[in-house]
Design a protein around this nucleic acid. Structure first.
Length: 892
DNA sequence: ATCTATGGCAAGCCGA
DNA sequence: TCGGCTTGCCAT
């Protein structure tokens, strides 16, 4: 929770310069050369050496669950179909006899049979007998097209009996392949063998040894917790394979330059396709067209370039080439490249479904032969954005992410695609496919490993993990554990009916409950500051205080006295909550093992790289593990759990602050999980940490020492100079992304100067120079010397909603966006709007069409002032005085 | 087209 | 003119 360096997963990224020489042109193949049916059918081996289970799906034709296994030596995907006869089902509170009386159920084409099963109901804390209604295929359970059993059962029962209260139906919204994974306790991303047609889990000797070492660190904890740690450790200690894969990108020449090609219609030709392999093989498929010039762009000598006279041949050859790769990467392939290729091949060239390796779903596209990972969805994920990549990229575009992470921008050109020369188009196309591949390859294949690790944690196929958010990940491992323990998975409304709402009042209007405490800072400059924080505060609280939907407001009288501070909630003292167990053990594993391992420089390179990935993956999951309980999008939504977590958080930090004060330590500031202590002695720090562990079971540690810290009276707004150099700047306007570069740079100069200061005595000299910096920036503004164009003065604000949705107010960036729209620019949600402040109404203008003479200089001076005031207050300086002096000088 | 939470600041809009 | 509200960005 504390702002640890979220960039720790970035190593140095080697710059890529390509050898550029001549083009090799192969002869265009003829359509008659191709075989009738180019798609090679997958293998279903009876025996298979250890292979990674990467995907589980459902084959509608065969009506079985079907698995994809990646064999790391041949680097191929093999298939295995279920041979256990597992079938889809739902659970209901009706008895088997009652269900059998429902004719619409028993006569449903998908109905198979009913059976009574015993389950543990975690909400009632008792064993219950429920009825399992088994179906022949998943559509019978929850299909939309015809009536499905989960709807029919309650409807028909009510019609038949006239009873107002409908019978309960459980677990009917779980996707079938997920249910299959749970019931067979499958470990996605782990090694399996096929032996005589059967699927067998492989245990690796090497990781078993490490697991022993890990468990040694957990002496004294109870068996249940130790088992949970061991399960996680086994999943996370298994090494990652090399993923053979290819980046795919297509170019379509639209007849009308400004029109975005429609993947449903696929009316325009596919004129170029690039494949960029993890083996660095580069393939270009180019369509010959009338009147297109060769152009003079130099392509890499090792690029394999093929020109095609006929588009259908191009598509067929492309499909064959794609099938060589078990993993295919795209950027927005779900919504564009793959449906486009599919519809183009099918509707315009009469390909049969069996001749196209692509399967188009409602929201996603997949491959028959392997896996499709759409990186747009992965990088769109907010948690990935923030916790794995430290907010390094902001727009979710190939260009923005490629530039931010790889330093590899897209190639720019002026003309529409239809008018580019062959080589221009090919160069552009190839670069896109290269960026796509490299987004998964940089830093020793970090992204592939991250997806693999998340797949193991969540028990989800890699394809799903890359597309879905944290709430799905967390839901899935909790569901999995429910099934493993034969627990009934509750419906959300059942949880809410029993656990009700929240009892605290949020500070912010419209929020559901009260959150964290932020301590008022002590303004000024403070030397020698220790920042202590709780490692993973909220996950620790969930662990230590046994929080979960089962344990909050449980149905035992004797637990009611175990109150959560500041609330009327109580927590169970008899049973352990699953969330507490799973999140708690994962948290401990991160803190006690992976944090150290990430720092260990003696490990071999491949292991170090893996030990870099795992803490990032855990960070993403743990950071989200509290928030999901307060989100209705989470299937185990339980506001009291979120509320209790926050309440214990306030309790823990308040106690800590009180204890620090009783030890005569001045507390300068604190936010949620941290306390900033003025000049504490090493002994004081140790006493506080020991006290925390002993009295609250919470691990409090010194996270960093500041040589000095600067606070104004603002919360979430400070600057700290680290003992060993380096500056933390938090929340200051001068660092915010929307602020003009001119002001940002000025702020950066100030920051650099402050970093030099070692002692209080050195401050005086620094202050003089800071005044000089400010004077200089001020004068340059007044004298309009910021550059040839107003670019340096542009604000950059993201459009949070469609333009039409701004009805209550019209913020400045919206005004600018509307001006852009008027001159023919397409404006969408998420676009970054750049504008400057001008003197004439409406006071703003898009930077693209603004000139220097229009700039409202005084507005910028005011900005400069408010930005610097956040620091100057604490330094005892005054902006007006600083520039007032200047005025005097100029006057003289 | 999809979604972990609450707390806090700055700026600007807009109606009383 | 003032103060509440909207918006975006950030801290944790």
């Amino acid at each position: 929770m504390a702002a640890q360096s979220s960039l720790d997963i970035f190593g140095s990224i080697p710059p890529k310069k390509k050898e550029i020489e001549s083009i090799e042109i192969q002869e265009a193949p003829k359509h008659s050369d191709l075989t009738e049916n180019a798609v090679v059918y997958p293998d279903y081996p009876q025996n298979l050496p250890p292979s990674y289970l990467v995907s589980v799906g459902y084959d509608g034709k065969k009506a079985v669950a079907t698995l994809k296994l990646y064999e790391p030596l041949s680097q191929r995907i093999y298939f295995w179909d279920d041979n256990t006869g597992h079938k889809p089902y739902l659970l209901t509170s009706l008895t088997p006899q009652e269900v059998e009386k429902l004719s619409k159920v028993t006569q449903h084409t998908g109905y198979d049979h009913v059976e009574a099963v015993e389950k543990y109901d975690p909400l009632l804390d008792k064993k219950v007998t429920v009825t399992k209604v088994v179906a022949k295929d998943p559509l019978a359970i929850g299909g939309r097209q015809y009536g499905c059993l989960r709807d029919i059962i309650p409807e028909e029962y009510q019609v038949l009996t006239g009873i107002a209260e409908p019978p309960k139906v459980w677990e009917s919204f779980i996707r079938y392949y997920q249910s299959y994974i749970y019931d067979n306790d499958l470990a996605l991303g782990m090694l399996y063998e096929i032996k005589d047609g059967n699927l067998v889990r492989v245990r690796q000797k090497s990781s078993e040894q490490t697991i022993h070492q890990i468990l040694d660190k957990f002496s004294g904890v109870n068996k249940e917790f130790l088992d949970a740690v061991e399960n996680w450790a086994r999943l996370l200690e298994s090494p990652a394979p090399e993923f053979r894969r290819v980046g795919l990108d297509i170019e379509v020449a639209s007849a009308v330059a400004t029109r975005v090609p429609d993947p449903q219609k696929a009316d325009d030709p596919v004129v170029c396709v690039a494949l960029y392999g993890s083996d660095r093989r580069k393939q270009l498929f180019i369509l010959k067209r009338e009147g297109i010039a060769e152009g003079n762009k130099k392509l890499p000598t090792d690029a394999e370039i093929t020109y095609f006279e006929e588009e259908n041949v191009l598509l067929q050859k492309l499909f064959e080439a794609i099938m060589e790769y078990p993993f295919v990467l795209t950027f927005n392939g779900d919504d564009f490249d793959l449906p486009y290729l599919y519809n183009r091949a099918k509707d315009h060239f009469g390909f049969k479904r069996t001749e196209i390796p692509i399967e188009v779903g409602r929201r996603t596209c997949s491959f028959k032969h392997g896996l499709h990972i759409d990186l747009y969805k992965f990088f769109f994920n907010r948690s990935i954005q923030i916790y794995a990549f430290g907010n390094k990229y902001r727009d979710i575009t190939l260009n923005a992410i490629g530039t931010a992470i790889l330093g590899l921008p897209k190639i720019e050109f002026q003309n529409p695609i239809a008018e580019l020369s062959y080589t221009e188009l090919a160069e552009y196309n190839l670069r896109d496919s290269e960026i796509t591949l490299d987004l998964t390859a940089f830093n020793d294949n970090l992204v592939m490993k991250l997806i693999l690790a998340m797949s193991r944690i969540s028990h989800m196929p890699m394809e799903d993990v890359s597309r879905q958010g944290v709430s799905r990940w967390i839901r899935n491992f909790l569901y999995h554990e429910h099934r493993r323990r034969n627990m009934l998975i509750p419906n959300m409304e059942d949880i809410l009916a029993i656990k009700g709402g929240t009892t605290t009042t949020a500070m912010i209007k419209g929020k559901k409950y009260k959150g964290a405490i932020v301590v008022d800072p002590v303004p000024g400059v403070h030397f020698n500051v220790a920042v202590m924080d709780f490692a993973s505060l909220y996950p620790s609280i969930i662990k230590v205080y046994n929080l979960g939907y089962q344990t909050l407001l449980c149905n035992h009288e004797e637990c009611k006295s175990n109150k959560v501070p500041e609330t009327t909630h109580w927590v169970c003292t008899k049973n352990k909550a699953l969330e507490s167990l799973l999140i708690g053990s994962l948290r401990d594993l991160r803190v006690k093992w992976y944090k150290q391992k990430a720092k260990d420089k003696t490990l071999p390179a491949d292991l170090r790289s893996w030990y870099n990935v795992i803490p990032s993956a855990l960070k993403v999951v743990l950071n989200a593990s509290y928030g999901v309980f307060g989100s209705p999008a989470f299937n185990l939504y339980c506001p009291p759990v979120a509320e209790a977590t926050a309440a214990y958080g306030r309790h823990v930090i308040t106690q800590t602050i009180n204890k620090a004060r009783s030890l005569d330590i001045e507390v300068l500031y604190g936010d949620t999980d941290s306390v900033f202590l003025k000049k504490p002695s090493p002994e004081q720090v140790e006493i506080l940490a020991d006290w925390s562990k002993k009295n609250m079971g919470m691990e409090l540690e010194v996270e960093k020492w500041y040589r000095y810290a600067v606070f104004s009276s603002r919360k979430k707004n400070y600057l700290g100079i680290l003992k060993d150099g380096g500056v933390d700047v938090k929340g200051m306007t001068g660092k915010k992304r929307h602020i003009p570069p001119y002001i940002k740079k000025a702020f950066y100069e100030l920051e650099e100067r402050l970093e030099q200061v070692q002692t209080p005595a050195e401050f005086e000299e620094a202050k003089k120079e800071i005044k000089q910096i400010i004077r200089d920036k001020y004068l340059r503004l007044k004298q309009r010397r910021w550059g040839e164009t107003p670019d340096e003065l542009a604000f950059h604000v993201v459009l949070g909603k469609p333009l039409k949705a701004y009805t209550k107010t019209t913020p400045q960036h919206v005004k600018a966006a509307r001006m852009l729209e008027k001159i023919g620019t397409e404006i969408k949600v998420g676009d970054l709007i750049s504008f400057v402040k001008v003197t004439k109404e409406p006071r703003v203008k898009p930077v693209q069409i603004a000139t220097n003479s229009e700039i409202d200089v005084d507005k910028y001076v005011a900005y400069l002032q408010s930005t610097f005031d956040q620091i100057l207050d604490a330094l005892g300086l005054d902006f007006d005085e600083i520039i007032g002096l200047t005025k005097l000088f100029r006057f003289m």
